[in-house]
Structure formats: C-alpha cells, structure tokens
Write a protein that binds this DNA or RNA. Structure first.
Length: 838
RNA sequence: GGGCGGAUGGCGGAAUGGUAUACGCGACGGACUUAAAAUCCGUUGGCCGCAAGGCCUUGAGGGUUCAAGUCCCUCUCCGCCCACCA
C-alpha cells in the first residue's frame, strides 16, 4: 500500500492531540526536567517563512528525544504579537490590529501544527491578550517601585512630513521609510529603564553560560565596559572646567587640542564672541544631521574652533577647544582630549584642520607609522617625570597622580545606555501610570488591583501629528482620576516596546493560566531555568540582553531562583535563497529555476546564469512558503529536508533540487517496512548499535544533518540485507524525532502497541558499535600506499598490524632499498613508515 | 573601521591533526517495462595510462608536523552583526 502523507499526517496529529501525549506535567515530579524553548515568533500576515521551521524542527527533535529518554519536557509555543506591521496596516485600512493579529496567529498556528511539532498547546500565550499583558504591566510596576523606571526628555526620530515619531526600524539610511523624507531628532518625554545599573552584572554573569562565543562577545561589546580616567581641564579665562573621559591617560602629554560634542552644555559659555555666529550655525547643522549620517565611519570629519583654550593639567599648555560632531554627547562626558599622535580619529581631524601632533609613546619594537596614529602600547617619551614608563604602568601612576592633585580619577564607562522604554504607538501595552493633575502633581502608578489597563477601542489609528501616541487623542480614556489623591488625572499615553512581552514569556509558560500572579513561585523553582533556547542570531544582543536584565531584577525581587534565564543557547544559521538575476536585471526566484530541467532551459536560451545566494526577500521573488512544500512532499519530508540542508548553526542556501533525496529516503523506509522478511537479529547487530550511538550523539551536538546521514546508511544496509524486527523497531524509534508521522504509521504497521513517540529511546552497547574489521591506512612518508583490513580486536596491536603490512607487496615495494627511520602507529587508524631512500 | 563566521567535486555538503570528497542531488550506462514513471544495479574530483599503476587536488601564498581541509602567519572574496565609543 503506497504511503500517503496527506492522510497519514493529519491522522497522527489528531491522535497525538486526542491522547494529549505532548502535554507537559504541571511539575516534573520525580523525573528530571528539560525546558526547551523556541524564540516565539511575531505572527506576521505573510505566514511562516522557511527559517521558522528550521529552529522549530530542531527543538522538536530534541524535545522528542528527551521525552523518550524519560525527561519531563516543557516545550511550549506562543506569540509575540504586539508590533508595528499590524498598526501600520490599521492606519492604511482601518482594520483593528487585534483582528489582524488574531488572523495571523490562526494562520501561524495552523502552519506550525501542520508540521507535527510536539508543543504543549495548552500553554500557548499571546502577548496582546489582556490576561497576559496585565502581568507585563504588573512587572513594569515592580521595576518602577524599585526605582528602575524614570521619565526623561530624550530625542526621538521624527518625520517632519508624516508628523510622527518613528521607530529605529522605520528609519532607513536617515530617511523615513514611508515618505523618504529626512528624519529629524526631536526631544520628547520618554520612559527609561535603568539597565545601566545592571551593566556589570550583565557582563560578569556571561561567564558560565553555555552560549556561542560570538554571542557572548557581542553582548560584551554592546555593554562596552572601558576602564580609564576622568580628567578635568581648566578653561583659560573661565571658572568652569571641562571633564573628559579617556582610556589612555598615559597620552595626556600628547593632548594638543580638545573637542566637545555640539550638544555639550558648556559650548555656549566658552565660545568667544567673534566665533559665535559660526558656532551656532555648526550646532544647528549638527542637530539637523541624522545620526545615521553623523556616525557614518569614513565620513570627512567636520568641526569648528570655539576661540577658547583649555589648559592641559600635566604641562599647563594652552590647547584650543573645538566642536565636532564625531564626538557624541551621550558617550563618556561628551568631551574628549585629542591626542592626534595616538588616536586615528583625532589624527584625521588634526590633519584636516592643521592642528599640532605631538608623539608621546614609542612602540616597544619597530617604528611607529608616520602617516597614521600609533595606537598601541609602548614606552612614554616626552612626558615629563613619567618619561620612559611602559603604557600600563604609566596609566596606573598618572591616575594616582591625578587623584592626588584633585585633577581627575579612575573611571569606568559603558557603551550601554539606559533603555528607552516608551513608544508613541497604539499597538502595545499601555504603561500603567497616571499623571496626577491635582494635589500630587506627579506620576502615580496604577494600583495592582486596577490592572490590566486595557487598550481602548478606537476607530482611527492615525498618528496625532504632534509625535504623541494615538492614545492621547482618546480623551475619554486619557481622563481619569488620580489613584492617590482622587483628583484629576491623565493616563500615560505611551505604550511599551515590543521587547516588553518577550522579556518574561519564558516564565509565563511555566504557569500560563495563573490569574493571581505572573507565575507561581514553586512552579518557577521546578521548571526554571530554560535548559535550551534556540532562535535566530538577530536576537544575539537586544532581546537576550533585555530579558537577562528583567530576569536579574526579578531575581533581586525574589521572584525567580536563578540569576540567568537561559542556560544553554544556540542560534540557527540563516537560510538564504538562490536568486537568478537576468541580463535585464530582473530577479527570478527559486520557483522559476528550482529544478534542474528549468535550469537547463535557462542555459539553453543562452541566458547567463547569474546565480546569487542572498537573503530571502519579497522583492527578489525568492521567498519560499512552507505550505507548498508540505502539500507536495509532506511534513516529514519538510522537517527532514530542513535538517538535511547543512549544518544547523551555519548559513546555508535553500536548494529545492535536493528535497527529492529526503523524500525518496522516506519512500525507501516505507518499502523496507512493508516488505519485511524475518531476518536474524545478529546480521545487523553491530551496525544497529553503531547507528544508535551516532544518531543519539549527533542530535545531542546539533548535527542533525549527519544524524540523518547515519539513518540513511542504516536504511541502505537494511535494504540490502535481511532486516529483523529489532532492526526495524530501532530504525523507527531513531527516525521518530525527525519524521514522526511515518514513524507512528510504521510502528503500527509492525504491530507495535501505543505510540512510538512514547517508546523508550534505544540504548547501545559501546563494545558493539565498532565493525568486525577495520581498515588501517599504511603510509610511506605520509603518503597512502595500502589499506589493510584487520579484525577490530587486532587494530590496536602494532606488532600484528606491522606484520600484516610487511606481508603486503605494495608496502614491501616501498620499503626495500629504504631505511626506516621512524614508525608511527595510531591505533585503529594509521601505520606510517618514515623512510629515507639512499 | 571593529567583532564573528564561511570558502571542499557539476550542485548541497561529510571529515576527534591520522585513509579528503561520507550522505544526498544531478549526470552517464544497464536491468525491469509495449512505453513512461517508480524501483534496482553499476560508474562518476582532475590529469597521464590499454592496463597495472602514477601524479595532482579542500579560495591564494608561506610555515609548523612523520602527517594539515583541520594548527600558525600573510592575503583575496563572501555572509552576518556592530559601527567615529575617546
């Protein structure tokens, strides 16, 4: 009977759902627990992308194996559903984001379920559901009460044409994504979270996490701790001093000018009258220049002299004070001492404006370059009493000296800045704050009993035109009473960023229905932390940093028992697409060139095959919809194919030409099951044990592609021999995490009871994982000359192997007339004669 | 500019410093078939050779080693992330 995935797959999906075999227990009980989590998706209207099933298949494979190995597995799925696309769609069409979102969720859920993943759907969460965001708001209030949330006026992206605030994602190369007009910075009141208070802990606790090295270093760079010193410079003729931050206090003697950020508060005071007009114009220009452009590397540096001079505290030299937009107001102190001889940015600036360059460090070895700055460590020259000191020692001594003289002190700065936590948007969690207009006249948190503050129903989602949130136009909703004094109050109209919901969803999954608390403390203790977290590398910094920050706050509040939320993290490699660009520049997606026949047609027309591998995007017509693949090949083939593409953690192209391979493999498995002839349990015993070992180990190490390879080799061998029942049972167990539907169908076909998904994962005997005989390579001077077949038992016996080698004509040929100077024997692998021919 | 990763047959890709090219795709030849599909068997990195066999080959060039796709140095190209961070 031919295997029909169209009927078999839905049948087993229903059977699993009816029997609730993937439902996680409330607590792990006496089983070891395993919490395996996918980064939950934003349910976009476009539906699933092939990148989604890649990660989900991987976690599903591991979840299924762990379950079969006797773990209590928590494997949930949910929706990170607040976000810009639904809101923008609402602005264009008037369809409420809630409607769009629910539709997208339904579509995503259907697609995900059609792949047969073993999620516990009873734990599904949706960040836009008031029963969920009630607790997002509650958690915000905990941060607020801990004094970690505050209001501040900060610049936001503002489009003067659309008259609306823009998210960073909506600004492309300094221009508004929608109208193309240049985006300005505009100061607005924002809610901020004090993530900087946790900078050190966020950095230090990276140690001990089983995360990819690249992610750890990205987080570390993002936090950007640098050690150095603050130094105060007096200003000639003024009472004020300018504080600068430097990581190289040892180059103070080489500071020949100073640069302030255009936004620096002292600029207006110190600027001499003759320079006033010029300076004001420069500042204005800098304000109008979008940050994107301003911070573009390699851009020609611009600046202007203020007319004022600072006094270098180490040698009392007067150095000119300049203003330049390459100095950023928000990093360090917004002012730098410039050492053009030892900093390349300063060097470029000094060259442009013909400023003095003074060398104060010589390299320990070799010559310093003359056309650029020498930024390395070395020994001090021309530095007064400090001359001759090595850079590190100099730093210590000068810092102590500065402290002693009251001119400065050791300092640590971070690139990490406080987190701007408010958005001028409708489709987000309302920030649960009332601005009292009565007696209290301050921001007052909404009492917990009044949560959630739900989003009001509105007809229009248009921005207000002032940059305020659309919520501010809904007077009925805004006007309220102050929870503290009962006087007039106005609700906060800003909403939270999309990150808010994803900062704690992994905690909600352990207790998703709780109406009295965000989660139960006992359950938290039982299930946390997440044992394995899988998702795209695009979240390497922001989401993972924000979630860690909230988690640490929860830890301080006694809400969680572990310092870190995600014990082990892996990123899936991005799936790229083949595109072909023809001579006219038009793109042809994979659907036009997917199969070899089509490719040949293109070759036949003489059209050059300009194949490119690049990110999938609608405009390049190379986006692949999983539905089509599932309908023609089935969910099992789709899952297998996703895993067979290449290394899970590396970038790889989606090449539909080879899905035929995994599809044929499944057909072969089915034929094998149907045509079983009773065989001897001994025949394939060693291969059976070896395959169990290989598949188990490769899954554990995320080498899904080669785990499938091992299964293919097993099937090829079984097809060519007489497979016994045990061979087939084990094959189905090993196959079941990858192709669960066929595995269940086959399990039933062989007359087994229950679900293969609930069978015990097979174990192996290490002694039986090697073949009866092994090949030993015999090399002469590293070159392969002969391969010996020796029994496994003798493969470690050098005397035996050498005797065999010397019995081989091929080897003898190379050994006669040669003097063996060295024999290298690697047990079970290599015998290498190093010879000297006279 | 910085960080991280990658480059292996016609294609996707395998290879704890130890037999490079496993597995799959494609191609070629054959079997089965009236025929096709499906399936099965065989061949398939390059060069020389009737053959036995030999030589070469993991982006380029050097090095370490008995032995290098793998380690080290220099360079080229590609991808991702960050980017004037003092």
């Amino acid at each position: 009977m031919p295997y029909n995935h169209r009927t078999v797959e839905p049948k087993w999906q229903k059977a699993w759902a009816d029997a609730k075999i993937f439902k996680s227990p409330t607590t792990p009980g006496d089983k070891p627990k395993f919490y395996i989590l996918d980064m939950f998706p934003y349910p976009s209207a476009a539906g699933l992308h092939v990148g989604h099933p890649e990660g989900y298949t991987a976690t599903d494979i591991i979840a299924r194996v762990k379950r079969m190995q006797g773990f209590a597995v928590l494997h949930p799925m949910g929706w990170d559903a607040f976000g810009l696309p639904a809101e923008n769609y609402a602005i264009q069409t008037g369809v409420h984001p809630h409607e769009t979102t629910q539709k997208s969720i339904a579509a995503f859920r259907r697609q995900i379920q059609s792949l047969g993943f073993s999620y516990d759907w009873d734990r599904e969460v949706d960040t836009t559901d008031p029963t969920y965001y009630k607790w997002t708001q509650w958690l915000f209030l905990q941060l607020y009460k801990k004094d970690l949330a505050y209001e501040a006026v900060v610049p936001i992206n503002f489009c003067p044409s659309c008259k609306t605030g823009l998210a960073n994602e909506e600004v492309h190369q300094g221009a508004c994504e929608r109208c193309g007009k240049t985006v300005e910075k505009r100061d607005m009141r924002q809610w901020m979270l004090k993530i900087t208070l946790y900078a050190d802990r966020l950095r230090e606790d990276l140690e001990g996490l089983d995360w990819p090295q690249s992610t750890l270093s990205m987080q570390e760079n993002w936090i950007g701790r640098s050690e150095g010193a603050y130094v105060d410079f007096a200003i000639d003729g003024h009472k004020e001093t300018v504080k600068v931050f430097t990581t190289r206090p040892d180059t103070l003697f080489g500071a020949t000018f100073m640069v302030l950020a255009p936004e620096h508060p002292l600029v207006k005071n110190i600027c001499t009258t003759d320079k006033n007009a010029e300076v004001t114009a420069y500042i204005e220009r800098a304000r109008m220049t979008p940050e994107m452009e301003r911070t573009e590397a390699g851009r020609k540096k611009t600046g202007i002299f203020t007319g004022a001079y600072a006094i270098n505290p180490v040698n009392q030299e007067n150095i000119p004070i300049w203003i330049a937009d390459y100095v950023l107001a928000h990093y360090g102190t917004g002012a730098i001492m410039s050492v053009p001889a030892h900093d390349n940015r300063d060097h470029g600036f000094a060259k442009t404006y013909d400023l003095k360059i003074k060398t104060v460090v010589r390299p320990a070895m070799g010559q310093a370059p003359t056309d650029t700055a020498f930024e390395g460590d070395g020994f001090a020259i021309d530095s007064g009493a400090f001359t001759g000191l090595a850079t590190e020692e100099f730093k210590k001594q000068i810092t102590a000296w500065l402290k002693e003289k009251g001119l400065g002190e050791r300092a640590v700065t971070y690139k990490l800045r406080d987190w701007v936590f408010s958005r001028q948007r409708y489709w987000g969690e309302p920030i649960p704050i009332v601005h009292c207009k009565g007696k209290c006249a301050k921001a007052v948190p909404v009492p917990e009993k009044d949560l959630p503050i739900t989003l009001p129903q509105v007809e229009r989602f248009q921005p207000t035109g002032t940059g305020d949130s659309p919520l501010s136009a809904i007077t009925d909703w805004v006007k309220t009473i102050c929870p503290e004094c009962g006087g007039a109050g106005e609700r906060e109209t800003n909403t939270m960023p999309q990150w808010a919901g994803s900062c704690w969803y992994y905690l909600r999954f352990i207790d998703p229905k709780n109406t009295r608390a965000a989660w139960d403390k006992e359950l938290e203790k039982a299930w946390n932390p997440v044992d394995l977290y899988i998702g795209g590398a695009e979240h390497a910094v922001l989401h993972l940093l924000y979630a860690r920050f909230w988690h640490k706050v929860f830890y301080d509040l006694g809400l969680v028992t572990h310092k870190e939320p995600f014990k082990r993290l892996r990123h899936q490699g991005m799936i790229l697409a083949f595109s072909h660009q023809d001579s006219k520049g038009a793109y042809h997606g994979y659907d036009e060139i997917e199969f070899a026949g089509e490719t040949s047609k293109l070759i036949a027309t003489g059209e050059p095959l300009n194949m490119k591998i690049e990110k999938m995007s609608k405009s390049k017509k190379n986006v692949v919809n999983p539905d089509e693949v599932i309908s023609s090949y089935g969910a099992d083939a789709m899952r297998l194919y996703e895993m067979f593409l290449g290394d899970f953690e590396l970038t790889k192209p989606w090449d539909m030409r080879s899905i035929e391979g995994v599809s044929r493999f499944l057909a072969k498995v089915w034929r094998l099951l149907e045509n079983q002839v009773p065989g001897d349990a001994k025949t394939n015993q060693r291969l059976r044990h070896k395959t169990i070992a290989l598949v188990s180990e490769r899954i554990e190490n995320f080498k899904f592609n080669t785990a499938i390879t091992a299964l293919m080799e097993f099937v090829n061998a079984l097809t060519g021999s007489q497979a016994c029942k045990e061979d087939l049972d084990i094959l189905l167990k090993l196959l079941s995490p990858f192709a669960p539907h066929m595995a269940e169908e086959g399990w039933a076909l062989l007359g087994n009871q229950g679900f293969v998904s609930q069978a015990a994962w097979p174990t192996f005997d290490p002694a039986l994982t090697t073949a009866e005989s092994v090949g030993i390579a015999v090399q002469i001077n590293g070159k392969l000359r002969e391969t010996l077949r020796v029994p496994s038992g003798e493969a470690h016996n050098q005397v035996y192997v050498e005797a065999q080698a010397k019995a081989s004509e091929k080897v003898v040929k190379y050994l006669e007339n040669a003097k063996v100077t060295k024999v290298i024997f690697v047990a079970g692998r290599i015998l290498n004669y190093v010879v000297h021919t006279s």
